[in-house]
Write a protein that binds this DNA or RNA. Structure first.
Lengths: 166, 166
DNA sequence: CTTAATTTTCAAAAATGACTGAAAGTTCTG
DNA sequence: CAGAACTTTCAGTCATTTTTGAAAATTAAG
């Protein structure tokens, strides 16, 4: 397998992996491309490599910057914007975990908590409340744990991790 | 808020939560409905409650059984099949984690490992291989950890968890 | 075996989500 | 300031995924 072929496969694989976890395929592909590009790339570079439109490239680059995974760079004597990705994969993971927790876990926790306001009239209601409360408790625990992870340093994580696997 | 309203909200919320994590909205809704139903339900019950077609109900019930989240039940003197969900939310979580690991993490790990077979010709290739290797290492670690979690008992998990939060 | 009840399948339709491209907006340069 | 270079927006189009519904298959009962 040569380099170009490898890169293509990586981009495709990352795109399909992302889409299985609720992340836009193209956004994941742009991210993959930047991850494996030693140099920062312009919107035009990305359009060419991935064969996507200017609008699409722009939208997904904005989104990746929102996620804190990609940064903008200006080159002296060049009016184009260049983009590069955070390369430290540990930081990438932490960033993704933190963002997804905020975007998708926290909102459902709020809803679950509001659902526990149902008046406990009878056995059926009690059963409903119990199910909701159980899910709510689990998600609160997950939230706490993810928060701890994303706010700790690499070393702490590695240590806890090794302890767990003993 | 009354019970029916609460149930509806829960089903909607669970559906939209699922879809943000790469799970079909209707499948998550069927799951939600069964989670909060004290009695097992027939395909017709589910079609009525969620206002979906017979084919759709059937497909998603099969999928939920594949995931090990829903089981079939036969009632004496009734030819219909009835379905009920695993109610223990801890087991539900473990089941989902295990399935997703198998379905989506393991396949990409294989691809990543195959990508490291690229011949290390020059500096660019070396950089590509490093990125891939880093992701591969992280995913191997995640795999190991998730495996440990899904194969341990509730008590061990709770203990490790509490230790981590200290 | 025949009929009726129920489940399964799958091609076509609908719905959803993503992308394009051109126009409008912005920023820089001379 | 005018024009050029580049970025952003978004209505319309396109692609993918999901759903439908009717027919085929299966299963049970008489």
């Amino acid at each position: 397998m040569n380099l170009d072929e490898g890169k293509q496969r990586f981009i495709q694989a990352w795109g399909s992996f992302g889409s299985k976890w609720g992340i836009n395929r193209t956004m994941a592909q742009v991210h993959a491309l930047l991850l494996i590009s030693p140099m920062s790339l312009s919107a035009d570079n990305i359009m060419d490599e991935l064969d996507i439109s200017r609008g699409n490239a722009n939208m997904n680059l904005r989104a990746l910057m929102d996620w804190g995974l990609v940064m903008k760079e200006y080159k002296p004597g060049d009016r184009k914007e260049y983009f590069y990705a955070e390369k430290d994969i540990w930081r990438v993971a932490i960033q993704i975990i933190g963002q997804r927790k905020k975007r998708e876990l926290e909102p459902i926790r709020e809803i679950l908590e509001s659902l526990m306001q149902v008046e406990p009239a009878d056995a059926e209601t009690a059963a409903f409340k119990k199910t909701v409360a159980d899910i709510s408790d689990l998600s609160a625990a997950a939230d706490k744990m993810l928060d701890k992870i994303t706010k700790s340093d690499r070393n702490w994580i590695m240590t806890s991790f090794i302890k767990m696997l003993n």
